[in-house]
Simulated scan of single mutants.
Amino acid sequence: MFGTTQRGVNAYAKVGLETGVTAASPHKLIVMLYDGALAAIMTGITQMNAGNVQEKGKAISKAIQIIDNGLRASLDKEVGGEIAQNLDALYDYMSRRLLEANLKNQPEILEEVRGLLADLRDTWNQIGNAGAAPVPAKTPAFA
């Protein structure tokens, strides 16, 4: 009659995420995108190792979507110059590698991309903690 407990938990989590996104600075939004992509890749690795093809595909697709529609879309190439261009190329590389990992069922490729994203996330956090002006970015449109 009232739905499952899991549905209630999911709704609560969604409200919490939406509230966090609304209150987040542009810098924090990028961190959230990195975190989401990293979590999706870790899920992809787990599902790949478990032989769960459908869930592996969902997780890898989610990571690609976050990279392409979140991180890449947030780059302002005109203002960001060479750094933004290099990040765009790196994000493109990561998306292609994730697709390859999915098609070839190779967790080592997922680990490669996970490492690249983790390094970028750590660097982004250091920029934010130092108070320096980060690479200009538009507000991410990923949802």
Rank of each mutant, 00 (worst) to 15 (best):
L17W: 05
K62S: 07
V9W: 08
K62P: 05
N102S: 03
E82N: 11
G81C: 01
W124L: 03
N52C: 08
D68S: 12
I45E: 10
T43D: 15
P140E: 00
S25I: 02
F142Q: 07
Q126N: 07
A39G: 11
E111N: 14
Q6P: 11
N10R: 13
V53G: 03
N49G: 12
A133D: 15
A40K: 06
V113Q: 09
L98G: 00
Q85F: 13
R7L: 13
N49C: 09
V53K: 11
G80S: 08
T22H: 11
K62E: 11
N86H: 14
T19A: 00
V31Q: 14
G44Q: 03
S61I: 00
G70K: 01
K28L: 15
I109N: 09
P140Q: 07
L120G: 02
M42F: 15
V31M: 15
V21P: 01
G128K: 05
F142W: 09
R121A: 08
R7N: 12
Y12P: 05
N129L: 13
A63Q: 05
K58H: 13
K14N: 01
E111H: 14
L33C: 06
A143P: 05
G8H: 12
W124S: 06
N52S: 07
L99M: 08
S74V: 00
A13H: 12
G131Q: 03
L38K: 06
G51Q: 00
G115P: 05
R7I: 15
R96L: 12
E55T: 09
K62D: 07
M42V: 12
Y34Q: 10
Q47W: 10
A143N: 15
T4Y: 02
E55P: 12
P134R: 07
R121P: 02
G115F: 04
L117G: 05
F2N: 15
V53L: 11
Q65C: 10
L117V: 07
R72T: 14
G81Q: 01
A24Y: 04
L38G: 00
A143I: 13
A133L: 14
E100D: 13
